[in-house]
Design a protein around this nucleic acid. Structure first.
Lengths: 195, 195
DNA sequence: GTCTATAGGGAGATAGAC
DNA sequence: GTCTATCTCCCTATAGAC
């Protein structure tokens, strides 16, 4: 309601997400957020009383972002391929739009799983389920329409592809090679899509 | 030299690795190690002066463990397939030998990349390179000998498979399904191996 | 090699003024 | 909504006795 400077909350969230994905849940503090924004720790606590609240908001924000990818269920082979390529572009963009690639928030949740709140776990679990069911549907339609090919069940192939992207952004940090790009190309080839 | 209780160092390392992989580099403290071992923080510092020293030792230990998988370069199709299946068994064992699956140390290094020492990064980078070159060789030999099939370059396929395993152990924590097992089956099918 | 004791700092969080 | 001030706790690390 208030406005004017109510966007402080949005700015906190933005900085928080970058830190969360850059350093992990336990790797940043309220100070790391407040300092660059020129505010005080207490102001951050006003908008996000506990660090867990901030964590949930970060994951939910990412969930809405990814949710946009999955809005329209594919029904034709062309649509399925188009959505896959949209996913590929998303992954490539996530990997290269910053200096060191930011990992997926899911990777942070998984690594810090023992230290996060039940709400954060739930939020992450929902994100996984949504992505899995969406990608599974895309794969199923795409294969049925003859646009792609792969052995086995769509559900399992979907899980495998999601895991690959999760891991590839992490490999990209450690290795001296463009892991995300290489994985995207390989996944496309495995599906019988032209490079 | 001393012996008798010099295995304290080994016990610290063992507990440390479990904590490292359970909670991430920033998610555990020297207290979390010393308490269950019935010793004091200072004793841990005696064996590992800084937390970074402990971190390096943990990664190096895992590196030696994985190095055993890659000891004998495959030259026949049978050997290549056997080594792949060894890798599959390793991943399945890592995922299921504990309650919540422990993530790969590489996942911790990647997530906490911004907070770890240069030595830890180096150690992780070496581990990635070793696994990549080993798996790449296995894939190349296996395909040349007609035991497996996949499109594209062995290097890229190797990166993709490694990324899948890295990510799949994390998905296993967040999702309510056996992600590692599903991914192993899918990877095998993609390579044209029987389930 | 392990202990006690402690330094020195930063974490997350809250109270109350403005 | 944001501030100052402060609480409490835990962190990594070191000094020096045993």
């Amino acid at each position: 309601m208030a406005r004017e400077r109510t966007d402080t909350k949005a700015r906190i969230l933005k900085v928080g997400e970058a830190l969360f994905r850059e350093r992990g849940y336990n790797g940043f503090s309220y100070q790391d957020i407040s300092r660059p924004l020129g505010i005080r720790n207490a102001a951050v606590h006003y908008h996000f009383p506990s660090k867990g609240d901030l964590g949930v908001a970060i994951v939910e924000r990412y969930r809405r972002l990814v949710g946009r990818l999955a809005r329209h269920p594919a029904t034709t082979g062309e649509q399925a391929v188009a959505q896959l390529q949209q996913l590929f572009r998303f992954e490539l963009a996530q990997a290269s739009s910053h200096g060191r690639p930011l990992v997926c928030p899911l990777a942070v949740l998984a690594t810090d799983y023992a230290n996060i709140s039940a709400e954060m776990r739930d939020s992450g679990g929902k994100l996984v389920e949504e992505m899995r069911s969406w990608l599974s549907h895309v794969l199923e339609v795409g294969r049925r329409e003859g646009a792609i090919r792969f052995p086995g069940e769509p559900q399992q192939k979907a899980v495998t592809i999601l895991a690959t992207f999760l891991g590839t952004r992490q490999l990209a940090r450690l290795g001296g090679f463009p892991a995300v790009q290489q994985a995207v190309e390989q996944i496309a080839k495995d599906l019988g899509l032209a490079a």
